[in-house]
Write a protein that binds this DNA or RNA. Sequence first.
DNA 1: GACATATAGTTGTTTATGCAACTAAACAAA
DNA 2: TTTGTTTAGTTGCATAAACAACTATATGTC
Lengths: 146, 146
Amino acid sequence: MSNNQFKKGELYSFITGKASTAIGRRLQKNFKQNNIEITIEQWSVLYHLWKEDGMSQQELCDATFRDKPSITRLVDNLERIKLVKRNASKEDRRKNLIVLTPEGRELEAKSMEIANNTLNESLQGVTNGQIEIAKEVLQMVYENLK
Amino acid sequence: MSNNQFKKGELYSFITGKASTAIGRRLQKNFKQNNIEITIEQWSVLYHLWKEDGMSQQELCDATFRDKPSITRLVDNLERIKLVKRNASKEDRRKNLIVLTPEGRELEAKSMEIANNTLNESLQGVTNGQIEIAKEVLQMVYENLK
DNA sequence: GACATATAGTTGTTTATGCAACTAAACAAA
DNA sequence: TTTGTTTAGTTGCATAAACAACTATATGTC
């Protein structure tokens, strides 16, 4: 702790500033330039549905680190622009299963390509080892605060 | 790039999810528990004013990685709760110099103590070296995307 | 079965963000 | 001085977040 002290000051700007979300904003910008009219928040939901269609809203909360109201509204908006649909679960009538529409499924290929390109652009000059450590730190922080 | 590919998938959740802002949210929670009724975004502005009072809004934009409308509104809110005041610059009448009120200055000691405690809590088990690398990665990403 | 409790999701309110369009002052060139 | 450009800041609009309060269904216990 005492050892960390002198380094912490510089961290505050990153934590409270917008630097940590720079990639997300660039991703959204690149989507727009390619006529993909969704927000990164919406994309983060679609991303998990592409891996596993028909997740419940609660599962989407856990996957995206968001709370329930946030997911409710993201799904609202995704439903409004017809990329997903809420299907009532037959096993548990409290649950909505969120399923992709054909339009929602169609977005995967192009948007993943843009995402990969954006990530390459963002991580230029960053080594694999550094990425691993940065990920570990984020994970540990998240675990510490859970 | 090709080398990074397999690791990138796991990154998307962090980038688009809320894990990267977990410390900020915990900080805000800890403020509230100590009856400090400000948001972390407001705190991020105050933090820079404590180091240098009388910054212009543009300087606050650069320091906090925020755009001008964001700072306009953060200063609006900080002025409304009487923690800062806008002073018109005499040298350049386009500029507002943002100065702390006595109430604003008073918040520094207690909130910095809470921030330091929160950071210690968040970074438990993370070594200095790891913190350094995580900071470097964030900095490089930010530079890459500037 | 009846009651308490946990889980899934929604709604209301306040604050912040991203983007584009705007005003006003400063500066530069002719 | 006039005209054009840059810089500082504001406003409008849509989306998202945090938090608390809410409804409805499921589950566990007696």
